[in-house]
């Protein structure tokens, strides 16, 4: 008994080497509890039945559909631009690179409403008005949602893609060039496969960021029921009209997607490292 107790104490000592470690682990415990509370409280409030019933309603389904379509298109466009930009930032030295890097990720830290206002003002300029009149309408239309979500998705995608390519040894591409690769082939056969997991992570993080946006997209496209009603907009409108079941159903969908994506990204990053 005494031996077993000593062993247990010894194992505990090995795990928590000192008081400082214990304080750090307490911080981890508190923050994990807070995050779990955020996730679980939504389901616990109404139970499962009411939100599941709400999911069968046409308005709710339309909001989910619109969110997936707009965020999907925005994040695909974002990753297509983020890959060459991130590669350039990781590989090419040019004056003011640090400033460009900082500018590109401004939408991450910028207030989404400010981003929406900035986009609105673009379409008040002469060029913006011409685009609206002759090409495609963004203000108070679905393309406006895609545009706002694109900026948000792009900022996070380029940040992840850039750090992914920075982690791929440039010398591998150099060696590939001597083995007969053109710059494109060296990228295609060496850097791209090695950066694959990071690029997937960049895409899904951008996608989730785009799907969860309310401020920027509702500022440029408005919160028009049945027209520009994405999931976050629908949550807002349903809360305003005290339709709690619908709001919680949509909020659970958003949370579920986010949690799945975060776990998926974590797994991808573990595999990459």
């Amino acid at each position: 008994m005494v031996v077993a107790a000593r062993r247990l104490l010894g194992a505990q000592r090995d795990m928590i080497r000192n008081r400082f470690d214990a304080i750090l682990l307490t911080a981890v415990g508190v923050s994990t509890t807070l995050m779990l509370m955020l996730i679980l409280v939504q389901g616990a409030y109404t139970g499962a039945k009411a939100p599941l019933r709400a999911l069968t309603e046409h308005d709710v389904q339309h909001a989910i559909y619109l969110s997936f379509i707009t965020s999907g298109l925005a994040s695909v466009a974002a990753i297509l631009l983020a890959i060459p930009t991130g590669l350039a930032l990781a590989r090419i030295q040019f004056p003011g690179r640090w400033l460009v890097e900082s500018l590109l990720i401004v939408p991450i830290v910028m207030s989404p409403i400010s981003l929406g206002v900035a986009l609105l003002l673009i379409f008040r300029t002469e060029a913006g008005t011409w685009i609206e009149d002759h090409l495609i309408r963004f203000v108070f239309e679905v393309p406006g949602i895609i545009l706002a979500e694109f900026f948000l998705a792009y900022a996070i995608s380029v940040l992840v893609v850039r750090s992914t390519f920075s982690a791929v040894d440039a010398r591998l591409e150099q060696v590939a060039r001597f083995l007969g690769c053109t710059p494109w082939q060296a990228f295609r056969h060496v850097s791209l496969p090695l950066a694959r997991n990071g690029i997937i992570a960049a895409f899904v993080l951008g996608w989730v960021r785009a799907m969860g946006d309310f401020g920027a997209s509702s500022t440029i496209a408005g919160a028009v029921k049945g027209k520009t009603e994405t999931m976050p907009v629908s949550i807002y409108l349903n809360l305003a009209s005290v339709s709690l079941d619908r709001a919680i159903a949509l909020s659970l969908v958003l949370t579920f997607v986010t949690v799945v994506v975060v776990i998926m990204v974590g797994l991808l990053m573990r595999r990459s490292s």
Binding site: R171, Q174, V175, R177, F178, L179, C181, T182
Partner: peptide, 11 residues
């Protein structure tokens, strides 16, 4: 360009 030089390189 490097790919046309027919060199090999071991870094």
């Amino acid at each position: 360009p490097p790919e046309q030089r027919r060199f090999s390189y071991v870094p």
